[in-house]
């Protein structure tokens, strides 16, 4: 999604109303309870929350020009990788084998066999249409943010085709956009 993303794709940047700000905050808190204790630091109630509208119904949530979350239409908010790296335990994790790393980093969606092979691993509790952190065999930090197309149980049982959509990965356009001025 962010393969060719750049500041030019941002069509409008707006400071949102207090009521909208509260709503965004609440849905982030609901989706990532682990983040709640630091939410006041990340999204200070007093600093303006900026939502940047981009092509393909993509929204970026920014504080002090730093992208922290994104979502599509009114789908669930997902953290940027830089934010996830700081708080790695806020998302459920799926792990791809080493062979899949280069495909994930070129933007490919995540195929079931890359998750079910000996180098991969699945958190059985992950349901369909859930934001997940994509980890990699032998690596400590996440390399992508994914959105599951099927549950972890189905990924295991069906074991073919795309299991997880690759939303955001290391070195894509959003990664390169450390700040949006």
């Amino acid at each position: 999604m962010f393969k060719k993303f750049s500041a030019e794709e941002v069509s409008a940047q707006n400071q949102v109303k207090a009521s909208v700000q509260r709503k965004i905050r609440q849905s982030i808190a609901d989706e990532y309870p682990g983040l709640e204790p630091v939410l006041d630091d990340l999204l200070p109630k007093k600093s303006p929350l900026i939502v940047a509208k981009c092509q393909n119904h993509l929204n970026l949530v920014l504080v002090n020009n730093v992208p922290l979350f994104f979502n599509i239409r009114d789908g669930p908010y997902m953290p940027t990788l830089r934010l996830l790296h700081q708080y790695p335990n806020i998302m459920k994790k799926l792990q791809v084998d080493r062979g899949a790393i280069k495909f994930v980093l070129s933007g490919a969606n995540i195929m079931c066999p890359g998750l079910t092979s000996p180098g991969g691993s699945l958190d059985e509790e992950v349901g369909a249409e859930t934001p997940v952190a994509i980890m990699a065999e032998g690596k400590q930090h996440a390399l992508a943010i994914g959105f599951t197309k099927m549950s972890a149980k189905d990924i295991k049982a069906i074991n073919k085709g795309i299991g997880v959509d690759n939303m955001h990965y290391l070195n894509d356009g959003l990664w390169k956009m450390e700040r949006l001025e």
Binding site: H85, Q86, Y87, P88, I101, L105, K139, Q140, H141, L143, L170, N171, W175, K176
Partner: peptide
């Protein structure tokens, strides 16, 4: 968590 990012390519050093 403080991740060590490569100052050449910007990725976490392990990548």
């Amino acid at each position: 968590v403080r991740v060590l990012y490569c100052s050449i390519c910007s990725l976490p050093a392990e990548y």
